[in-house]
Write a protein that binds this DNA or RNA. Structure first.
Lengths: 208, 208
DNA sequence: ATCACAGGATAACACTGTTAGAAAATATAC
DNA sequence: GTATATTTTCTAACAGTGTTATCCTGTGAT
């Protein structure tokens, strides 16, 4: 009998709809507007149902989205790695993939880094990002001459890319406006050159 | 009669105590724990009193702290500018002053850039930062050859410094632990060299 | 048809920001 | 000094939040 299977399927569907509803509300009205009750209304269930899927409550729900976000980012970066042969160009493409991820899923990026009013009490963002950014680290490995230097340069790379995204988000231009789109395109060009500059400086310092 | 003066003085004192209480709670338990009622308890007044000093409510209170934060940062940067003769060293010192500001007043930095769960609905963070970062811009002016390039490079500088701070905060190491202090010192050295690399690359691109 | 049980809903608790209206404290006028 | 006016402050309420104990209801098995 496929009764239990049906139930499992249904359970998964409800769980997904909860996560999706949270993201939708966040996208439309910001993370401050995301509440258990509103999610419940969206999925047409009563609030306690959410606690069946996320027993630890809202924090666990956000944590899940954070993890999902890092996983998605990891895939994007991995894919971007194979879009070029030269290592330097690979790093540029990885950086741009990172940037584009933040534009495509701003609500996920916010929950991943506690931006714009969200707060997830997790202690493993660094570990998560090291996982997601491994391809970048592999490339930088070839441009550095010691584990210490690699760590430092990887951190530098991360700070540059995250800084660009973070600062762009902080500007809070009205979403969808033409000015906003121009701005984002300009910033992408900025980032592209910033990464180029970064690579140049790493090679320069490392003596080659 | 000094009655009105006394009242003005008293008013100012209460206003200041409100802001101070908010910062204290944020420092101790994070911005999520900052509530109007808790502030009221701290200053030993009832909640409505806060609305006499900040009629628009909590948002206005946070906005005020944000503005105060940018003003304080501006002063720190200005002071740092005069600690060196060479322009390049000036930029390093400015960057480190920026960094140190974020360590000394993390709660202000968080409210300035909507980090770690705070949210202020303000549209002028960019303008605020251009004001505060003017000394840096003046230095970069001499390293660039067009207003466009200046804007780009200034944005790059900001992204690097803010990225370092932002990423460090995202790690959420237990405050005050020895490991945390070591980490911060290491990161400061990282930032120092990152800025050096940045300067090198700007000069390199701009054709010496 | 009865019983057991799981899924889901209601209602409550302690919080939050905010505001209207009552009370208390102060200043002014006589 | 007493009475009035004004300003300051508090109480209480409203709607919303996260979370949980309790109740109901409908399905599955006997």
């Amino acid at each position: 009998m496929g009764i239990v299977e049906r139930k499992i399927r249904h359970n998964k569907a409800v769980r997904d709809s909860i996560l999706q509803a949270a993201r939708r509300i966040a996208t439309e009205d910001g993370w401050r507007a995301v509440s258990i009750r509103k999610i419940a209304k969206h999925i047409e269930y009563s609030p306690p149902v959410i606690y069946q899927h996320f027993p630890a409550g809202k924090g666990q729900l956000l944590q899940t989205l954070q993890d999902d976000g890092f996983e998605l980012l990891r895939k994007r970066i991995e894919k971007a790695q194979h879009t070029a042969f030269e290592r330097e160009l690979q790093l540029v493409n990885i950086s741009l993939a990172y940037w584009k991820f933040s534009l495509e899923y701003p609500e996920l990026y916010q929950v991943m880094f506690n931006l714009e009013g969200v707060f997830v009490d997790s202690k493993n963002t660094t570990a998560q990002l090291k996982r997601a950014g491994k391809p970048a680290m592999d490339i930088l490995f070839h441009m550095t001459s010691s584990p210490k230097e690699l760590e430092e340069v990887f951190f530098n790379w991360w700070a540059v890319v995250h800084g660009y995204i973070s600062v762009t988000m902080a500007q809070q231009l009205p979403l969808g406006s033409p000015k906003e789109r121009d701005d984002k395109e300009q910033k992408e060009a900025f980032l592209r050159r910033a990464i180029s500059r970064f690579i140049t400086s790493v090679k320069f310092i490392s003596g080659r």
